[in-house]
Design a protein around this nucleic acid. Structure first.
Lengths: 339, 339
DNA sequence: CTTCTTTTTGTAAGCGTTTACACAAGGGCA
DNA sequence: TGCCCTTGTGTAAACGCTTACAAAAAGAAG
């Protein structure tokens, strides 16, 4: 049916018997078009199967309608959830997503940002940026719209969305304490990341509140990957006085913990309580279902996208960090310690 | 430092003391530029921090340097692995990825494809397309380059890459049989997908080869999600004569199976052997580590990207389906049945 | 029926490149 | 020295659209 190679606004204009300017106005929902003319144009577009050329619109209009998304990796469902939120919001505005995976190579990150900011996209969304200090300065100075997702740290006041990691760490620890636990093992995330630091700080604060002395043996430094949970738990279980509960800084490490516990012939939660962080989809699917601190990942993506859109609209507007609240989701992996 | 808003080739031309045509030639690695001129231009570009405008290049050059990627979802690591491969290959060619997540809404799929094919991208990569029949015709007829990933079915001979699902199903079943199992439960994937059908067919073929009668009670129809594995296994275990091994059509369902087995107070692999399909990163991390059929996911992505690039180069070339071979990865979740 | 507004529509000038074509140098050769 | 090739460089015309600005049509008011 479509024998023509490319249908342009001129073709549509000819078909509808108007000038191409009018067609352009119809495309852009310009007010100044007589309803019946608009209708005629719309039908012509329909008939010809016209789709506006993106590149041309961008060139002439000065905006690309692309948003750049930089993510470290797509291995865990974690980032998938965030993207889902971003995607939902962007689709509403007819914007498309250009995906860059940095695979944890910090160098690529800065290079990508430099290029993208040169007009390839209208705005930038950075998930779990590794060392944003490298380019935030440039971005800010150039007034290029961007939003950081799940990062805090540089102390600089720049647009970011994250979760209340400190509070999440605190709440979870408090929950374990109230269940009666006194020796609670903690497995940290990758401590270069602010979120990992905050979760640990929350854990510590809760212990302090309840006058439980902190034991350095009960803190194992991990990197957010499952094997850390396994190894950390093994180490805890080797202790002369092992913990009765283990709180891992994310769910996948918590699953590593569960494996280790089972490996030792112990049971969750009867012998050891296990608590995670994130509430990835899998958390509710393992047995026992994991009690965890829920991060509103999808919502974080959504909010970040909204912030970015606002920023694109009004670049002057000053926005800072937004923290979405975490929520303790109680399932089956924790119970009071054995007497 | 960059006080100028936009640096164009004209600025570079002025800086280098040449015409903008020459600058363009330098950008495009045109042979007809005197080495020293090239050098001068390059330095000017460097000095000015010039980055070519993507939209303008696309408009004038006729290609966008974008590849469209349609995926159903990013929940499981499965697609992340594929993207990693695609990404690696595309980066080599300086192409960027525009991401569309259809979230299993078939309607969005067709709409996206229609738009994208209208010049928004140079080619299309479709991962696990739901009902490609809707648009393959249009794409083919219009000679628009595309490659299907992990799909077979329509019988039409179109560019696709997948894995040897049948063989994988066969090999795994044979392995279980050789371990001594006679009653092997099978949990299917979502049967609308060709890969799910093939795995089941492989399972059946192996049974036939070894003259083991097929028992309809030992086949549970799932949809590739973890709860299916759980439910299916529960159903098997309720049988008067339950299976001694369970083969799930993907790893996440196999993990559901493990949960169910544990829930019943049984042990993997002592009481029940469990086998998966895919070899997602998690498979080696759970305890017992999952024996599974490895799909070369990253490589599938890479090969698909290469095929697409070839197709873009020579649109006339006829390419069909490529199948990458699966491999049985033996870990800890299977052993001979108890006497 | 003018004249002045207020829509509505047409026109032309870009947006930043690529690329076919024209033109200016340098050789090589007779 | 003159002529023809190369090789390197400049020029102008697209690419398909947006958007001021100008022009025409349609009301409103007198």
């Amino acid at each position: 049916m479509d024998k023509k190679t490319k249908i342009t606004i001129k073709d549509v204009a000819a078909e509808a018997g108007v000038s191409f300017g009018t067609v352009s106005r119809v495309i852009n929902d310009d007010i100044h078009v007589k309803p019946e003319t608009r209708e005629r144009v719309l039908q012509a577009m329909q008939r010809l199967g016209f789709v506006a050329n993106r590149q041309a619109r961008s060139l002439a209009g000065g905006k690309t309608n692309f948003i750049g998304l930089l993510v470290p990796d797509l291995g865990t469902g974690y980032i998938g959830e965030i993207i889902r939120g971003i995607d939902a919001e962007l689709t509403l505005q007819g914007l498309d997503l250009v995906l860059y995976t940095t695979h944890r190579t910090a160098s690529k990150e800065a290079a990508y940002v430099a290029n993208l900011a040169q007009g390839m996209v209208d705005g930038l969304l950075l998930v779990l940026p590794r060392n944003p200090a490298d380019y935030i300065g440039v971005l800010t100075q150039r007034k290029f719209p961007f939003v950081l997702i799940d990062h805090q740290g540089t102390g600089k006041d720049c647009p970011a969305v994250g979760a209340t990691n400190w509070q999440g760490g605190y709440d979870a620890t408090e929950y374990l304490i109230k269940l009666g636990h006194r020796r609670i093992g903690f497995i940290t995330g990758w401590m270069d990341l602010g979120c990992a630091q905050d979760r640990l700080a929350g854990y510590r604060a809760a212990l302090r509140t309840y006058h439980i002395p902190e034991d350095p043996d009960l803190i194992y430094e991990g990197t957010f990957f499952q094997p850390d949970g396994y190894t950390g738990a093994m180490k805890f279980l080797d202790l002369p006085n092992p913990p009765t509960a283990i709180f891992a800084s994310n769910d996948v490490m918590a699953m590593g913990v569960m494996d280790a516990v089972r490996m030792r012939g112990l049971r969750v939660p009867e012998d050891i309580s296990v608590l995670g962080f994130d509430d990835i989809p899998q958390a509710s699917l393992v047995r026992p279902a994991l009690t965890t601190v829920q991060q509103p990942l999808e919502n974080m993506g959504r909010v970040a996208a909204q912030m970015l859109l606002d920023l694109i609209e009004q670049p002057e507007r000053k926005v800072g960090r937004i923290e979405l609240s975490t929520k303790l989701v109680i399932r089956e992996s924790c119970q009071p310690p054995r007497c």
